[in-house]
């Protein structure tokens, strides 16, 4: 059982993106975050912003 606050994320370009909902459902009270593709710097910027928002909340 996971008791740690968890963010379940996945980039839309990732092969595991279709599993995002299923993975999030398996972790109690998880926050789900679909992320943009990280093909370029803007995608990394957005992922980092979402990760920081979760960690600092």
């Amino acid at each position: 059982m996971i008791k740690v606050l968890t963010l379940i994320a996945c980039a839309e370009s990732d092969q595991l993106f279709p599993m995002l909902d299923e993975a999030a459902a398996l972790v109690p009270n998880a926050t789900k975050a679909p992320l943009p593709s990280r093909k370029d710097g803007a995608g990394y910027d957005e992922a980092a912003r979402i990760f920081c928002e979760f960690l600092d909340s």
Partner: peptide
């Protein structure tokens, strides 16, 4: 991916050491 499974395992076995966790593309 592999790192998400490692993080998951650490969170389960050592919740006293992991404050928050981000799983980026974890496989089921």
């Amino acid at each position: 991916h592999t790192g998400a499974k490692i993080g998951l395992e650490l969170a389960i076995t050592h919740p006293d050491r992991v404050r928050k966790m981000i799983l980026d593309a974890v496989s089921v």
